[in-house]
């Protein structure tokens, strides 16, 4: 599982960080940093929730 973020769409709402702070982090510069580009399979439910809940649909999973 590889996480892909479309940074043209991302508006740093940090919803993903609220769901999976070990994977997504919005820092004080207001940019999103993906801490784990290829998280373990066990994280899939959380990543899928982040994909679904992202207000700008900026996150996707490439297998």
């Amino acid at each position: 599982m590889k996480i892909v973020v479309d940074f043209d769409k991302c508006k740093s709402n940090a919803v993903c960080m609220g769901i999976a702070p070990e994977i997504f982090e919005v820092r004080d510069d207001n940019f999103l940093y993906v801490l784990q580009q290829e998280p373990p399979e066990s994280a899939r439910p959380l990543v899928e929730q982040a994909v679904r809940d992202c207000p700008t649909q900026a996150i996707s999973i490439s297998e």
Binding site: A14, G18, V26, N30
Partner: peptide
């Protein structure tokens, strides 16, 4: 206001 990171910490 422009504090997304902190807001999510408080959400938790």
């Amino acid at each position: 206001f422009n504090r997304a990171r902190q807001v999510m910490q408080y959400r938790r």
